[in-house]
Structure formats: C-alpha cells, structure tokens
Amino acid sequence: ELTPEQQNLLHYIMDSYNKQRIPPEVSKKLLQEEFSAEENFLILTEMATSHVQVLVEFTKRLPGFQTLDHEDQIALLKGSAVEAMFLRSAEIFNRKLPIGHADLLEERIRNSGISDEYITPMFHFYKSMGELKMTQEEYALLTAIVILSPDRQYIQDRESVEKLQEPLLEVLEKYCKLYHTDNPQHFACLLGRLTELRTFNHHHADMLMSWRVN
C-alpha cells in the first residue's frame, strides 16, 4: 500500500496536474473552418506554445523543483518539454478530447506539412499508449518523472534532481502494482515508454526543420 506520505504526494501531484488547461481561446481555434497547411501550422504552433506554458506551471508546483538552481530548472524543462508534450498528446488523443475533436486535431497534424516519416511513428506511439490503459495518475506521475530526469544535458547538480525524482518513481511503482494486478510488467512497460519518448525528442528537431522547409 501507499504510505500516508506517498498518498499525500500523489494527491498533490494530481491537484497540480488537473490545473493544466490550455486557454479555451486557443483550443477553440482547432474547430475553426480553415484547413490550409499554413493555418494548421499556425494553430499547432500556438497550441504547442500554450502547452509549454501550462507545463511550466505544473513543473513549478512539483515538490522541491523551486529549490533547484535556476539554470538547472531551465535545463530540466528544456530537456523534457518535448517528451512531456508527447505524453500529454497521447493522453489527449486517448481520453481527453470531446468526440470529434481528436479527429480534427489528427487531420490538422496530418495536413500541416510534417512528413509521413514522422507522423506515422507519432500516431503509432499514441495508439500504443492507449493500449496500456493508463490512468490519469500514471500520466501525471510519468510526466513528473520525465521532467525530473537527472541525466539531461547541462544539469549541474544531478544528485538533487535524482532526490526529487526517486519518490515519484516509488509511488508509480507501487501504484502500478496496486491498480494493474493483471499485468505485473505494467511498471516496466511505462518505463519502456520513457526510452521511446527520448527517441521522439531526438527526432523532434529534424521534424521541425522539415516542417519549416515544407
């Protein structure tokens, strides 16, 4: 079972996670009529920017984050933003959007000038995340774990970051054992996704470049 401290930590993370909202004036643009590649590009860029702002707000509330060196805070966020966004998108595609919105978003992404070599693995990733039937708690904890990864580039004080990440890994491991009794490998599967996210992170710069060129 989760200890009372671990339960508090989980509730606290969930409370912060649930405060994440892209402003309605940004998300409603998704439903506007224009569907040119340029319009799709602009909408996705604005959503991504908004997404980063929301992610920073979540990160600021992670226990201990604000005690880290300021430049380490930036290095953690820079290193993880893309991965956290892919995770959030996976959650959104699998359970968050009202009916019809997911199709619209997918259509805009597919018709925004990004080449299929990036699109195909991306939607494959979202689909495979859906198959894991992750709860919101798991998405929240995994996002926090991704952000507090001590092995990002330019981190000076890795030990302090590790100390913040460890309790979250312990809660996630216990949570998986408690709520996925049918699959003893569930926790390992979630950690496996972190490797996959790193690959997306590496490809992301190339993807942006091809998007701009197109």
Partner: peptide, 21 residues
C-alpha cells in the same frame, strides 16, 4: 506573439511568471 519565441524563451518567461509582459 508567443509563437515567435523559442522554447527556452517561453520557459524562462513562464518560470518568471511574467508571460503577459
């Protein structure tokens, strides 16, 4: 507009809490 900023700028501004400035 925010969409013209790079990732690091967005992060720095959001961390300082003055994104609207």
């Amino acid at each position: 507009p925010a969409s013209n900023l790079g990732l690091e700028d967005i992060i720095r501004k959001a961390l300082m809490g003055n994104f609207d400035d």
